[in-house]
Design a binder for these strands. Structure first.
Lengths: 231, 231
DNA sequence: TCCTTACATTGATGTAGGTCAATATTTCTA
DNA sequence: TAGAAATATTGACCTACATCAATGTAAGGA
């Protein structure tokens, strides 16, 4: 269905960093060529080897991007928040991805076909620049993760992650965006180890856990020191 | 110095995927706004925290991009071959990088200032598209590495790496592009472990090593099987 | 608000691979 | 082509973390 709400601020394209610098009528035009789809928790948005033809933009909700190995082991690559996009490889290469995208909650996705997107990028060169900007940030994040995975021990990685979250959520009372299982996968470790280390942090008075997702950070300094420790 | 060789095929811009689709006079024009610099083995091209103002394109030689941790431990992120570029974050964000770039051998670099590059991208929208294409491939490679670092054991990672190299060099007699030390860093392990595993492979008759850099692959099948093994 | 199911914790145990240190080999330079 | 410097190998030892399994806790649908 075409996305033609009366109110521009409700358009998904208005939420996306690489469209929201355009004029309103331009955004409406883009909204018209985009399709919408709603998923519930656990829905697979695309699977490895699916022919990839769309750029997917998260409008509402959260999406988990991961790889799946033969053993059934999952590697979480990133969690997308509203305004972020995925499936971009479709736009530039013929490759199929070896990754999966799964809705973590009720999620509304805005899809734009590769051909239309290519056209758009030619028509509005600034769009490509905006995408480049996001790409370079993502590459930066990927590089950071690579470094941490091989140089820092699990404790440091968890500390580093909690601090990042604190920054992002602008509060010392943070809410984990995913289960500890997914978090473990993202940080290259296991549920059990995450659990043990966080209990340890709690015993040391650095943090306090409440329920499965809520974490209060008490001692930022110590956490910072731990996050810098290397193996 | 401006890059104004008489022969177009010698222009660095002619070697770079994101310029080489342009017309000859356009390439010449770009060559005129680019600077060249030659480095010898071990030279640092840029260091963490340096203000980053250029897009660097490898013309001749090879460049190692890495992070440096407090302990002095190094994480190799990628090795660039002629035609590949780095420093691209400079083009899109104000961030300084936390990475280092070092020449691995006598290397000639082509530099284009961020302002000029921005201008070029606006003038020739296809350039931005070409860069996007390389970016998405790089992101793909980074994701692959992240998955391997946390799911596969060292043996599988080495096997996987050797196979990639075989593909890239189109021969079963491959030459390691870096020292085993750098290779270890890239694969998230140590020199010693690499050494041990490769000796093991050799004893199993899967490969044969000659000198420090030459490796002949005898048993591709077995290597493939090993590369798929997970922890 | 119960109850089910998904999620998390805790304990016991094994091992891959890191570290340190000594030695060997290769490669490059003069 | 020797000889120094850079790289790599090998061995002994140790620990961080994965794994398996049992138990505990939380959250959301009916």
């Amino acid at each position: 269905m075409a996305c033609n709400h009366p109110n521009v601020s409700q358009l998904c394209v208005a939420k996306v960093p690489f469209f929201n610098h355009l004029a309103i009528d331009e955004m409406v035009k883009i909204a018209e060529i985009s399709k919408h789809h709603t998923y519930v928790k656990g829905d697979i948005i695309y699977q490895a080897w699916d022919p990839l033809e769309y750029l997917y933009i998260v409008h509402i909700g959260r999406v988990k991007i991961y790889q799946l190995f033969e053993s059934g082991k999952e590697q979480v690559l990133r969690i997308l928040e509203p305004g972020e996009f995925f499936g971009e490889l479709a736009l530039f290469t013929e490759k199929t991805l070896e990754t999966y995208a799964e809705a973590l909650e009720k999620t509304n996705i805005c899809m734009i076909h590769r051909d239309k997107m290519q056209q758009l990028m030619k028509e509005y060169p600034t769009i490509a620049l905006k995408i480049l900007e996001q790409f370079s940030q993502r590459l930066d994040a990927a590089d950071k993760l690579i470094g941490e995975l091989s140089v820092k021990d699990v404790e440091a990685r968890i500390a580093s992650y909690l601090l990042d979250l604190m920054d992002k959520q602008q509060s010392t009372n943070i809410i984990l965006p995913v289960t500890k299982r997914d978090l473990a996968s993202y940080l290259g470790t296991t549920q059990e180890t995450i659990s043990r280390r966080m209990t340890k942090f709690q015993k040391q008075g650095i943090i306090k856990q409440e329920g499965h997702r809520k974490v209060s950070i008490f001692d930022v300094e110590t956490l910072q020191a731990i996050s810098l420790e290397e193996m």
